[in-house]
């Protein structure tokens, strides 16, 4: 954009934007810095900015205290697992709706969206009792099932908006060439659909990773994900600020990186394709 503005205006806007951005970012910065401080330094009367005695012992302590790696593994299994199952169910459905739409396709899509509007707490108690009776409480596969169900509407909507953009003309051109249906799918459609599927995968892993209603209510020690793990720090014992920061940093760092890469797709996914 080559809008001509005076340098002073530009400097003013830049400074203001950076100040606001850094204020918004400061809690994350606090985690990043505190994770490497000693507990004594973290609660010192005169706060320090950079760690004075740089230490990595918090990370070890977190692992020793409550088995960080187990919870991280649970988070990975649940978020990736639920997303993959969601894609297996969602891709055919979105594909059919995008390429063979009927009069009812719009209604079906709106209905799927409406299932997302149902408050989780409205079905918490039956799900809790069903899980208790089927011995699914505090299991990784039980949680994966729930996570698949709550994110399925978003997966289908996102895929639908991507598939919708694949030009159907290409399909017909290749049909005239006498290509078989299977070849058509493998060589023409799949390569065009892959970027959309990848974006959907990324966003849904992020959403499932950060989900904190079902993970907290349906799990405890064994199948607890990182959201449940961090919540266990809510009633602290003794010095814990630096350890909390170390655990938090490990829990949010991978998702922050993924989020930065997928911010464009995020807009589209979270607005159900309404804003691109």
């Amino acid at each position: 954009m080559a809008r001509n503005v005076p340098a002073s205006t530009r400097i003013g806007f830049t400074a203001l934007a950076w100040i606001i951005a850094l204020i918004l970012f400061s809690p994350i910065l606090w985690v990043l810095l505190t994770a490497f401080k000693t507990e004594a330094e973290a609660i010192a009367n005169t706060p320090t900015f950079f760690p004075q005695n740089f230490t990595l012992e918090n990370f070890g302590a977190v692992q020793a205290r409550s088995d960080y790696i187990k919870h991280a593994t649970n988070s990975i299994i649940v978020s990736v697992g639920s997303t993959l199952i969601g894609l297996v169910i969602g891709i055919p459905a979105a594909w059919a709706m995008a390429f063979a739409p009927t009069k009812r396709t719009k209604d079906v899509l709106m209905w799927m969206l409406s299932t997302k509007m149902m408050p989780a707490v409205g079905v918490l108690i039956p799900i809790y009792l069903i899980f208790r009776d089927l011995r699914l409480l505090d299991t990784v596969h039980g949680l994966t099932i729930i996570m698949t169900l709550i994110n399925l509407p978003i997966i289908i909507w996102m895929l639908y908006t991507y598939f919708k953009e694949i030009p159907v003309d290409i399909l017909e051109a290749s049909r005239m060439d006498g290509a078989e249906l299977w070849n058509e799918i493998v060589h023409v459609l799949v390569p065009m659909a892959v970027p959309g599927i990848a974006s959907t995968l990324l966003l849904n892993v992020i959403l499932a990773w950060n989900e904190a209603f079902w993970t907290i209510t349906l799990t405890s020690g064994r199948a607890g994900t990182l959201t449940a793990f961090i919540s266990s720090f809510s009633s602290p014992q003794g010095l814990f600020l630096a350890k909390l920061s170390a655990a938090s940093l490990l829990a949010i760092a991978p998702i922050l990186l993924m989020g930065w890469f997928s911010q464009k797709q995020l807009v589209r996914g979270l607005t159900f394709g309404a804003v691109k």
Partner: peptide, 13 residues
Amino acid sequence: IIVISPFFVMPPV
């Protein structure tokens, strides 16, 4: 990127 970051922080954190 800096401004969007808080959105990716899980609620308990």
